[in-house]
Design a protein around this nucleic acid. Structure first.
Lengths: 214, 214
DNA sequence: CCTCGATGTGTACAGTTGTTCACTTGATGT
DNA sequence: ACATCAAGTGAACAACTGTACACATCGAGG
């Protein structure tokens, strides 16, 4: 049941995915990358690409899978560190920002992919976000922080939270990775967004506003 | 003070910008478009491109300017049609969705540009969004709908509203332009997001939550 | 009327692209 | 021990790319 490839299994495959991420990290858009460009960056001959991927979209899809792992790691860390309910949002946003700095290219790729040109990658990323939102909902239920909300209203709230955090990526894109002041500004602002949303959720009436229901 | 160009002034220029938009509308990403591709789509010889644009980024910047016009038209229509405060959000979102359908490519371009590869285009679009949020703030003040909010809290709220609406573009991307049912779902959901945010704003306490202030 | 400058065209070229093909290599299962 | 087969290499090709240059056309201002 051991791995069956030569040398290091998937070594070149990882180099190729890493190379694509590096280029994205340098400001390039994933949609504008070419096979030769990626293989060049990876220090590999162009033909090797086809041993692992059918085309660039395929590589993108596999990157989405790895992105899923990154997101799950982040979720685990958040669950471990957010103990007190009051500072929940501050700490969660802080953890998010920190992970974005550690895996900048991955999150850039995610921000790009939401409006990217591969339908499959779009759907993959959206699906990751949905999963994230649903896990967030579970956590809030478990922490007894959303007892007055119906399932669908909780789902609505969590979706909005995830969107808001995801959108803050576009703020981070325009900021140098070591401009700590600006990053701190984004962190504060995102936190306040979430607080605003949770105040809304706390005062939310059952499924819809008066006058707008059906 | 008349226009001074030959034939129709800027005829080819418009054809080129239109061609780029068409390609974006067909699912391509702006960052992956090339000069030759655009000129081909426009039915123009490649060299003509340089008469009007330095490179693709330049064309992108000029598209952002036109995008500004589209957004302003939309704002004007919203201001004219939203008379009663209760249905304000429903109608505004409806107008937004309708404009997205009319100018699909423009809004696709906008969604792409937020995480695009030209820093200048990113900043241009972000600036349009900021302007939009500030105008929204003015309107809410004028309609006496935000009297209990400080200037900075109103600004926060409007920013969040604009972000939420902008993010809904990524939902619309994954939906065929004539799948009325799905579009209606996005419209409803976006409306509820905004309602949630406004409930939050209505119950918002002065600058910060208790326990999280400094 | 005639020059000038802006707009559009045709040709050309060197560099890059995606993809194919025949080949080497080395670990693995039997 | 040896055949097998996934992983990696190098050379090749036709298609396409961005950009440059010389030229044609036409409107406007003198």
């Amino acid at each position: 049941m051991a791995e069956h490839k030569r040398r290091k299994p998937g070594e070149t495959r990882d180099k190729l995915m890493g190379a694509a991420l590096e280029l994205v990290g340098k400001g390039r858009h994933f949609a504008s990358l070419g096979i030769r460009e990626v293989t060049r960056q990876a220090g590999v001959v162009p033909t090797s690409f086809y041993r692992h991927f059918r085309n660039m979209d395929d590589l993108g899809l596999q990157l989405v899978d790895e992105l899923g792992l990154v997101l799950r790691r982040m979720m685990r860390e958040a669950r471990a560190n957010v103990l007190q309910a009051e500072r929940l949002m501050e700490e969660s946003v802080a953890i998010f920002i920190s992970h974005v700095q550690q895996n900048r290219s991955f999150f850039l790729f995610m921000a790009q992919g939401l409006a990217g040109e591969s339908r499959a990658v779009q759907e993959g990323i959206r699906s990751e976000l949905r999963f994230f939102a649903s896990e967030l909902g579970n956590d809030l239920r478990r922490l007894r922080l959303a007892e007055h909300l119906s399932d669908s209203d909780l789902e609505l709230t969590c979706d909005l939270v995830v969107r808001t955090v995801a959108f803050s990526l576009t703020d981070l894109i325009g900021v140098s990775p070591d401009d700590d002041y600006q990053i701190e500004q984004v962190r504060k602002r995102t936190t306040r967004f979430l607080q605003l949303i949770f105040v809304g959720a706390a005062h939310w009436k059952v499924s819809g506003q008066p006058g707008s229901a059906r």
